[in-house]
Write a protein that binds this DNA or RNA. Structure first.
Lengths: 353, 353
DNA sequence: AATGGGAATTGAATCGATTCAAAATTGGGC
DNA sequence: GCCCAATTTTGAATCGATTCAATTCCCATT
């Protein structure tokens, strides 16, 4: 038996004594083929150890991959670790399951890796996690000339499709809640302003921030604080990398200052949750000594002790819509901003007088 | 400008007045092309809006997809929700990042969906999550004639590559720990024995279990219990679906029996964690009233209150090895069984006398 | 026996690139 | 100027399927 490597469709055709087209039909639209011939072809396939048409071949001719790429400029592990990313993926996977679409994870440990991965990903479109590194992600997607949609992109830009929330409005809600409770001394634990930079920041840094989500959220906070008569120039801001170590470092920094805050504005639930852990360990009671408000509304936030007050995004809905945007691409880019809301839970209270 | 849909490599070649081969080289091995020509080609590409070779075309000729498929017979969301799956994915993603390989998630909401997805996935090999539905996953992988490796497969089978642990040994460790503490009244919260079935089970069901992991673990438990003089026929077993509702139903069932257990053997950490929540809500103190021991050793198990005593698998290492097995396929299938260990934490103690 | 029409099958073009042996060009040394 | 070797470029084959217009087959009618 001439076993080269694996049998091809054309080998089966030859063996069964029919044309390639017929074999293709046997596997893809069997009802078009007479039962007798069908059986013949099936047996020939069996005999040759042919397991059905190779998707590589089909792809080229038929065009659709039936998979959508989810891209981030973080390492792949991000999708399984970060609570916000995971919740977003829940929405995305739900919609993909419903549409019979697969998911390809595209990520980057380096800049070239990202470029290469995005240029070579076998997908029908991209969903971009734009919290960090949005510009690169968008540039590569453009080059691929595939439909794409930006998630968690902080900026407005009507040349691309965006599905997200109004960061400024969300941040206002958070700050207003604390102001209404009577707080006047604040600290901000922010997301990255630019690639990999952690540490204290000031107002000038905010305006120069490359990543828009942290910048916009800060604007919302400070708008409300300023209106409430707080001197925002004295509010400490610390850039974290959205993980335990830099959050701890930030709190270390903030609580070593003369004026200790009574309320912490955290730019993500992950930061907020981590902050609560740190505070408890240091003997600060939440919310008695310090109030904490998060941002995102991940499921974990409702289960912490105390449960976290936060700005809830309709995270899974964002994911669902992103998938739809890719699967039914519109002629013009679309921007959808979904409703956020303040979820008041146990981590905030009036400051001790 | 003849703008059909998108320019092809051959269009660029024509426009630049060079051969296809040269254009291909410009994009893939630029050092082979004279700088002058390179520039010409680049400009022609620019002019035509050509963003580089389409991976669909490359794929067919070059053969490698540069992505590995991770398959389960659960819905896609499973990868982002289940703590064991997530931890496993951490190991997998780590190894993939290191090798510049992408990940395609392949899943199933129905049996045909799984078949279709696996037959059409554009991947170089499969990593199979075999906790449930292993037979189907393996059958489809065989048909694709791609390298594949079974993870968390409970059985031994030297016709396929397996990376896993010794379930019986792990279960023995768990049971022995409880016996040594003095427990004599047990209950088992088991994983699914077969597709979608939850509810009480008896010894006959165990032997008939389709899914091997729960069966093997039960064997390990009962071997030790029997040796300690426990009448295993009276130990209640309840099949859960590894999620909150069926775990609660199981405990409801178990604690409505005459003889209440002083120790619970949970076949996964997720079950164990959920069980602890239920017990606390019902006023049973862990470990004072009831001891709980899990299985898996997911990171969350170390953070619960109290921290969970469990059988720790080297989960991320399993993932890493699986990736290596796919990327460097051996002629013969390999079986690797990694070391597990008992992690004694706060959820177990001697029973109240 | 001739006819018509629906069902089944064929054959060749096509998808978009890579590859590599062979041909063409370049440049250095004498 | 000429020759040879090294460097560039070309051209055609190839990867493995799908597609669809054209053809053949089959059978029921007249």
């Amino acid at each position: 038996m001439g076993e080269g490597k694996g049998a091809r469709l054309s080998d089966v055709a030859k063996a069964a004594g029919v044309s390639q087209g017929t074999v293709s039909n046997v596997f893809n639209r069997p009802q078009l083929v007479r039962a007798e011939v069908r059986e013949q072809v099936r047996m020939a396939a069996e005999r040759l150890g042919y397991g059905g048409p190779d998707p590589k071949g089909r792809l080229l001719r038929a065009g659709k991959v039936n998979a959508i790429g989810v891209a981030t400029s973080e390492p792949l592990g991000y999708f399984f670790e970060d609570p916000f990313a995971r919740t977003l993926m829940q929405g995305i996977t739900e919609a993909c399951d419903a549409n019979g679409t697969g998911i390809s994870l595209v990520s980057a440990i380096s800049e070239e890796a990202l470029a290469w991965n995005m240029h070579n990903a076998l997908v029908d479109g991209f969903i971009l996690f734009c919290l960090v590194g949005a510009d690169k992600l968008i540039a590569h997607s453009r080059e691929r000339k595939l439909p794409f949609v930006a998630l968690a992109f902080g900026e407005t830009d009507d040349s691309i499709s965006i599905i997200g929330i109004d960061n400024v409005a969300g941040a206002r809600l958070a700050a207003r809640h604390l102001v209404d409770l009577g707080h006047r001394r604040f600290a901000v634990l922010a997301l990255e302003f630019e690639d990999g930079r952690a540490g204290p920041a000031d107002l000038a840094d905010v305006e120069a921030a490359i990543y828009p989500a942290p910048r916009e959220r800060l604007r919302g906070y400070f708008e409300v604080l300023a209106n409430a008569g707080v001197d925002v120039a004295t509010v400490p801001i610390y850039n974290t990398l959205n993980e335990p170590e830099t959050v701890a470092a930030g709190l270390e920094h903030i609580f070593s200052l003369k004026e200790k805050p009574t309320a912490i504005l955290a730019q993500s639930d992950r930061i907020a949750l981590e902050a609560m852990t740190w505070l408890r360990r240091r003997g600060y009671a939440v919310p008695r000594d310090v109030s904490v408000v998060g941002f995102d509304g991940v499921p974990e936030a409702a289960l912490s002790e105390p449960p976290l007050t936060t700005i809830s995004q309709p995270i899974t809905e964002l994911g669902r819509r992103a998938v739809n945007a890719i699967l039914n691409p519109q002629a013009k880019p679309v921007q959808e901003y979904l409703e956020i809301e303040l979820s008041v839970r146990g981590s905030t209270a009036a400051p001790r007088s």
